[in-house]
Structure formats: C-alpha cells, structure tokens
Amino acid sequence: MEIVDILISASFWAAVIRIATPLILATMGELICERAGVLNLGIEGIMVAGAFAGWMAVYSGTGLWMGVAVAMVVGMLFGLLHAALTVPFGLSQHVVGLGVTLLATSSTYFAYRLALPQVTSPPKIAAFQAYEIPILSDIPVLGQALFSQTPFTYLAFALVAATGIMLYRTPLGLAVRAAGESPAAVAAQGLSVTGIRMGAVIVGSGFMAMGGAFLTMSAFDSFFFEMVNGRGWVAIALVVFGSWKPGKALLGAVLFAGFDALQIRVQQTSLGADIPYQIFLMTPYILSIVALILVSRRAQVPAALMIPFNKGER
C-alpha cells in the first residue's frame, strides 16, 4: 500500500526527473561520442571535473549560467585530450578513457585542496531554484513533476531534443553517424573522419561535465568527493540500454531514476526498516547490469565503435 502511495505522489515524480537530469546529460554526451565511433570512459572523471568547475566558478562570483559554461568548457578540454589521443593516434580507447578519468578526478581533488585548504565542510552556493512554468505546472502529478524543476533540467531536456534533431535531421548528424558506422565512406565523401570524431568527443564531454555540474549547482549546492559515485558508468550502460538512440536513452534514464527514487522512499517505510540500506543502494547498479543483459542480444552497436580509422589503410 505504501508503495502505491509513493507512486501517485507528485513529489516522487519530481524527484525522478531531478535524479534523471545528470544521467540524461551524461548519457547524451556518451551517446554522441559513441555514435561517432569513440567509447569515452573518461566520463566519470569528466563529470567530477564539471561538478567542481561549475560550483567553484559560482563560488568565486560568476553567475549560475556562467558556471554551467565554465563546467562545459572544462569538460571539453578533457574531451580534447581524450580525442587527440584516441582519434588521430588511434590509442586504446579503454586505456585512454580510464587515464582521462584518473587525471580529471585527481586534478579536481588537487585543485579543490589548493583552492580550499582549510575547510572541513565545503562552502555552499546559491544553487538553481525551481521555476514553475505557468499553467503547465498546475496539471496534477505529471505537470507538477515535469514543470516545476530548475531551469537546468529544462535545458537538459532541450539538449536531448537538440541531439535527436542534430543526429537524424541534419547533414552534420549524418556525418557523425556515418563516422561511427562506416568511416571509410565518410572519408570517400571528402570529409574528415578525424575532425568529426574529435568534434563529437569534445562536445559530448561538454555534456558530461554539465551532468556533473547539475549535481553541485542544482541537485545540491556544494561539492563533495565521490559525489558522482559511478553515475558516469551507469550512463555508459544507459547508452547501450537505449540502443544508441537519444529518445530511448532518455526513457532509460528516467526509468532508472524511477527505481532510484523508489528505493530511497521504500527505505523509509516499514518494509525498508528490516532490510539493510546497502541492499537499496545496490539496486541501481544491479538494475544497470540486468538492463545490459536484457538488451545485449539485440543491441545495434555502431559498427565502427572502438575501431580507430587510419586513412589509407583498407
């Protein structure tokens, strides 16, 4: 009974959308990289860097949207590093990606310790506030959940739409998708596979960093170590779950967030009191693995994913 009460409350669905937002941004970022043929395992570290950079910018006096831009630029710089090593040089995307995650995470912690050497608890910023869209936010449950979020969440949904339109309705998107399916065909058209792939990784990394920034600038108002906590890896699973399609990946992120929000609430019920809380915390990760098993049989992986392209080689 308690679970039904949870499921029909507007606050639950508002939480689902809030929890989904960083995953949506990160998943779109990873999806853009993979559609162009590059697996970006730098995602976890880039999210950490974005979370810190955006928050730090706002803490040192810039506006909120400027903070988002700073996070994005920092993410793009790490994306540039990843792209430079994996695309023209064709280095192992696994090793470089993990290296970028280690570098982005450690340089963030290094910068944090330098910027705030004395603090025991990190300072707070004035984070994004919920903005209720007139009329729409008056619709019971669904409207309350969808249309009384922070502007950052609206931006995330807009970016999903933009990604979908870019990928399927523009020549640029065609080139990106072709770079991930058949790079030789792209090169035969006189386009630069290197340029397209690098661009995709850089832009995608910017999205990932925004996903991290949402955590410190909208979901919470402060930066903590370990705050990304595997969300980047979950995003990689969500890309697979969404068969590399923006709409399906969005649904996957919302579904995942739904389970996450539910486990938090079930923990507080009488049912949850008897079960160790770690079981609840595990469920999102276990669900990610289950989702991968369910879709892997019919997964339509971009054909050239993880295969470097060296012009002149056949």
């Binding site: 395992l41 696994h94 595997g230 890896w233 979950v234 990689i236 699973a237 697979v240 990760y285 990610s288 693995i289 991968l292 098993i293 892997s296």
Partner: peptide, 9 residues
C-alpha cells in the same frame, strides 16, 4: 554483455 561496464559496476 560488455565486461567494462559490468566489472566497473
């Protein structure tokens, strides 16, 4: 199923 994600998770 890709082992990178499963081992990480």
């Amino acid at each position: 199923v890709d082992e990178v994600v499963t081992t990480l998770l």
